[in-house]
Structures are given as C-alpha cells and as structure tokens.
C-alpha cells in the first residue's frame, strides 16, 4: 500500500500503519483510523440499537441487570465469571431475572465492581434528556459533557453512592 492511499482524515483517532513511501522504502505512517474515519456513525447506531433493545427487555423483566450491564461492557458469562471469581454456572443463573432476585448483596457488589457501576444502578435506570448533551458519569467522570452530568461518586460506605445533578455552564 502506498503512503498516499492509506491516509484517512480522522484527527481524533490516530493509528500507525506501515506503507510504501515515495522513495520505495516501507515505514510507519501516522494517519486516522479507517473505522473511526469512515464508519463511526454506524458503530454508534449499532451500540444505540443494542442498548435500546436491552433497556426494553430490562423494563419488561425479561433480562436481569447483571445480563444488561455484562452485555453493555462487552463481556460474556465465562469472562464475567473469571473477573468476579463467581463460578460460571452461578453467573449464568444470575443473568436470569429469577436468579437475580436471589443474589446476596455481597455478590452483587462483586458484580458491580467488575461492571464499573455502583450497586444502586442494579435497581434503577438513570435517564437524561435525550439530546446527547447529558452524560452519566461514575466517580466524578464529568469532563466530557456539554450541558451537564448526573455524577455518581463513591462514599465511605461501599454500598452507597452519592448521585448529583451538575449543570455545566461552560
């Protein structure tokens, strides 16, 4: 591949590709990511569809919150089992609504830690106005929002999260 043919205009996602330079030598070229530069909107559309489908199922009680967050994080049962230290057959049970109702709080905490959410989010959906300007940030991750954030911060109590609505007037 020639250097000029490989270039993609995508300043926010840069990669190194190897290509043939004008002098015939091969070497590294810093350019934009092909996927991010050409198909990022499709990526977001797929992620949006998956999320909406999961939320609908969660509302109807067809899936458990463990299954919901596991899928959003791109994990599967065996990977979640490995990360939580909970046997796979139990994780499988906990991904069903019936199994979820029998989980101990200490087990739920282990899931929450691996899934990067506070335990409280296993029992609630937090919605923002649907204009993409609001973010939900856990542990004070609020920098990317344009209008505001629903910020969730850890407290001294491992089971308690402090949720704040922060309006950003920048």
């Amino acid at each position: 591949m020639k250097e000029k043919e490989i270039e993609v205009d995508c300043p926010y996602q840069q990669v190194i590709l190897y290509a043939e330079k004008d002098d015939g030598t091969f070497g590294p070229v810093q350019t934009g990511s092909y996927m991010a530069g050409n198909h990022i909107s499709e990526h977001f559309r797929i992620a949006d569809n998956v999320s909406k489908d999961l939320i609908a199922k969660l509302r109807k009680g067809q899936i458990s919150p463990v299954y919901f967050y596991m899928t959003l994080e791109g994990l599967n049962i065996s990977e979640l089992a490995g990360r939580t230290g909970i046997p796979a057959f139990r994780v499988k049970r906990h991904t069903t609504p019936a199994g979820f109702r029998k989980i101990r709080i200490s087990t739920l905490k282990r899931y929450a830690d691996v899934l990067n959410i506070p335990v409280a989010n296993m029992f609630q959906l937090i919605n923002t106005v649907e204009d993409r300007n609001w973010d939900i940030g856990y542990q004070g991750d609020i920098d990317s929002s344009k209008t505001g954030t629903i910020s969730q911060s850890v407290t001294g109590n491992p089971l308690l999260v402090e949720t704040k609505v922060i309006t950003n007037h920048k």
Partner: peptide, 27 residues
C-alpha cells in the same frame, strides 16, 4: 453487523499496522 465490522477492526485498526500485520511484516 458488529461482528463483521470487527473483521475490519482486527485487520486494520486494532494495532496491526494495516492489512492484518502483513504491511508490518513487509517492512
């Protein structure tokens, strides 16, 4: 669709140098 897009990601974007490491190997 996501899994088929991942063919492209694994070959081009996910740290291969393009062409599934073949450009890097040519170098």
């Amino acid at each position: 669709a996501d899994k088929i897009f991942r063919i492209t990601i694994f070959l081009e974007d996910q740290g291969t140098g393009g062409g599934g490491f073949r450009f890097l190997y040519a170098s």
